[in-house]
């Protein structure tokens, strides 16, 4: 046997082990990537399974009934659903104009040297753990609302016909409005960073053309930048909405955990996530099943909202990639 054929043989052996290792490696990586899918699917299926007694036992009544009564073992999810929707809606109504203002400031108004530090500051709001928002909300913001904001709203907006009922009530500080405001502060960094990012994708020549025609900064932002980025901006808003719907700790402390349904935003309420956090460890049997069923509902709703968000953001990335 010649030397050359020996090395050729050993090379062939090595090729074979390399090929086998490559295949193994590829499968290991693919397995890990599929775990991401498994996590989402598992979260949906396991909460569906854990809440099956209530979800399949009560059907639609679980969604529409407002009676949540652990003593009689009857569970209707309308009060937590209502609380989740209302607090998230308040958060969006406050956070969207704020975020737009911030994005506008950081892309068009602020001098260049100020943009990076202020941008970092706004992003820090997203880094603060939600339990700290909750503590700050309960010990600092609730007393502030009770002392200054609630009485003011009750005396001014509360006197108006129609919308007055929204703002009437004792100055508790706790309640749907307070939770909505805390949520708004939490989601502002998410929405504003998406807006800021997409505002920067607007072609400079488009903006400069508008400026050359004599547009003001506001007109460029409102008539050029916003229409150009509309879809991604809506995606960013849905992203913030997804966050607000699922947020637990920040709202649990400031909502007041009350199952009564009231029209007033100044009254305590509950939300899906705070019901779960408050009651899960004391619950057993059907009560626990009802809480897991609430978790399933929350997961489905946030999944749909986030799906819309990512879909709208994805098509923008494509556009930016092409341009």
């Amino acid at each position: 046997m010649s030397v050359a054929s020996v090395t050729l043989d050993s090379n062939r052996g090595r090729d074979r082990t390399d090929a086998r290792n490559d295949a193994l490696f590829r499968w290991a990586l693919r397995f890990c990537a599929l775990l991401v899918l498994a996590a989402l699917l598992g979260a949906a299926l396991s909460t569906l399974w854990g809440g099956r007694e209530v979800l399949f036992g009560d059907g639609w009544r679980f969604l529409t009934s407002a009676q949540w009564n652990p003593v009689e073992n009857r569970y209707g999810a309308w009060a937590p659903i209502y609380g989740t929707l209302v607090t998230s809606l308040i958060a969006i109504v406050i956070a969207v104009p704020l975020s737009f203002g911030i994005a506008l400031f950081l892309t068009e108004i602020a001098p260049a040297w100020l943009r990076a530090p202020i941008g970092t500051g706004i992003e820090l709001l997203a880094a603060i753990p939600s339990i700290i928002y909750g503590m700050w909300g309960l010990f600092v913001f609730v007393p502030f609302m009770a002392a200054h904001v609630d009485p003011l709203l009750d005396a001014s907006l509360g006197r108006l016909p129609w919308i007055g009922t929204l703002f009437q009530g004792p100055p508790l500080g706790l309640g749907l409005l307070t939770a909505g405001i805390v949520l708004a502060v939490m989601i502002v960094p998410f929405i504003s960073s998406v807006m800021r990012e997409v505002f920067q994708t607007v072609p400079v020549r488009l903006k400069e053309s508008a400026y050359a025609l004599g547009s003001t900064t506001w007109e460029v932002a409102w008539d050029i930048v916003l229409p150009y980025t509309r879809q991604a901006v809506i995606g960013g808003i849905f992203l913030g909405l997804g966050r607000a719907l699922g947020e637990t700790m920040a709202v649990t402390f400031v909502l007041g955990n009350a199952y009564g349904l009231t029209a007033s935003l100044l009254m305590p309420g509950t939300s899906i996530s705070s019901s779960i956090a408050n009651e899960f460890n004391e619950a057993a049997g059907l009560h626990r099943s009802a809480l897991i069923a609430l978790g399933f509902l929350l997961f489905v709703v946030t999944f749909i909202v986030l799906l819309i968000a990512r879909w709208m953001l994805r098509s923008l990335q494509r556009k930016a990639g092409k341009a």
Partner: peptide, 28 residues
């Protein structure tokens, strides 16, 4: 593309539901 898309959703999925998930598949 699918995994990337769903990973972005998992990124903002409510953490309390992930806790319930682990409760059902590990604690129980």
């Amino acid at each position: 593309a699918t995994i990337r898309f769903l990973n972005d959703i998992l990124l903002s999925a409510p953490s309390i539901v992930l806790g319930l998930f682990v409760y059902v598949i590990v604690v129980l």
